[in-house]
Design a protein around this nucleic acid. Structure first.
Length: 278
DNA sequence: TAAATTTGACCTGA
DNA sequence: TCAGGTCAAATTTA
């Protein structure tokens, strides 16, 4: 999919990502939602979208590992648009949850290749998943919609408070030209994901700057595909954090679907300077 | 043939 | 007025 955004041969990649949570601005329309007539549905929905939590992540794409499959963040996405952005060298692709219609999930995301470094993709998530997607659930995780929503909300709020930063490397899918596969786990491929936890960056989580420009977080981070509120959605991540292991591998076979064994291997690498504030 | 993607048009907000 | 975001018909793909 991302190759579609950029064009050209899909690189083989190793990615790393940075997650940046943002909050609604003081001028958020959330407070005035109730003041609108239901008849103005389009406008109302637009405002609802603006009330959704929003965070930005960056994904570095390296040329060596290759296109091995779809970028899988555990959710199914459907591309609904692509737009050339003024002043940007690359177009921006728009995705929404594939279960939007069926389950009313309002989560969506935008993917855009960085101007400064074409190997970096900026991924902006907006909205929490309210859909039931078993693919991202692991044993011990909430199994029903309400529990999942509650857990997502709790984690979001926690991350808002701590500024917790998660670096995630991934990558197979970054490159998949087809958005479908970008979002859907590939049952035929063994995917490997590297998850790196870095120390929280000095991001300003100001209410006035909901999304940080790529230059604001030059370091590191490349995170993506793992929204901050889902940092423990791959089971054991929280435990691994607390252990502060230098390196740990988590095998997560079969988490994406009861009927499929994706054989996901997660290589979790902890930077030594990471203070886990959670 | 159903589902997903593409893309031009339209809508919204600054 | 214009850039960003979304819609929806046309097209492509599996």
């Amino acid at each position: 999919m991302l190759s579609g955004v950029q064009g050209g041969d899909p690189p083989k990649i190793t990615g790393s990502t940075t997650a940046i949570i943002s909050t609604d601005s003081p001028r958020s329309p959330c407070g005035s939602l109730g003041n609108h007539d239901d008849s103005d549905l389009v406008r109302k929905q637009s405002k609802i979208r603006k009330c959704q939590p929003r965070w930005k992540e960056q994904v570095r794409v390296c040329e060596r590992s290759g296109l091995q499959g779809p970028l899988d963040d555990g959710y199914s996405w459907r591309k609904y648009g692509q737009k050339d952005i003024f002043g940007a060298a690359h177009p921006r692709a728009y995705f929404r949850c594939a279960h939007r219609v069926a389950q009313g999930c309002l989560s969506n995301k935008q993917v855009q290749r960085s101007d400064e470094d074409p190997s970096i993709f900026d991924v902006t998530y907006q909205g929490l998943h309210t859909c039931n997607q078993v693919s991202h659930l692991l044993p011990g995780q909430p199994q029903n919609k309400e529990d999942q929503k509650l857990k997502n909300l709790q984690e979001t709020l926690l991350n808002f408070k701590t500024g917790c930063h998660v670096k995630v490397e991934d990558f197979n899918s970054l490159i998949e030209p087809k958005s479908t596969s970008f979002l859907q786990p590939s049952a035929s491929k063994k995917e490997k994901k590297t998850v790196i936890f870095s120390s929280p960056e000095r991001h300003n989580h100001s209410m006035d700057s909901p999304v940080h420009p790529p230059s604001a977080s030059p370091t590191t981070s490349n995170s993506s595909f793992f929204p901050p509120y889902r940092t423990n959605n791959f089971g054991g991540l929280q435990n691994l954090q607390s252990d502060h292991n230098d390196f740990a591998t988590v095998t997560a076979s079969g988490i994406s679907s009861p009927s499929q064994d994706f054989g996901l291997d997660f290589f979790v690498d902890f930077n030594s300077d990471i203070p886990f504030s959670r």
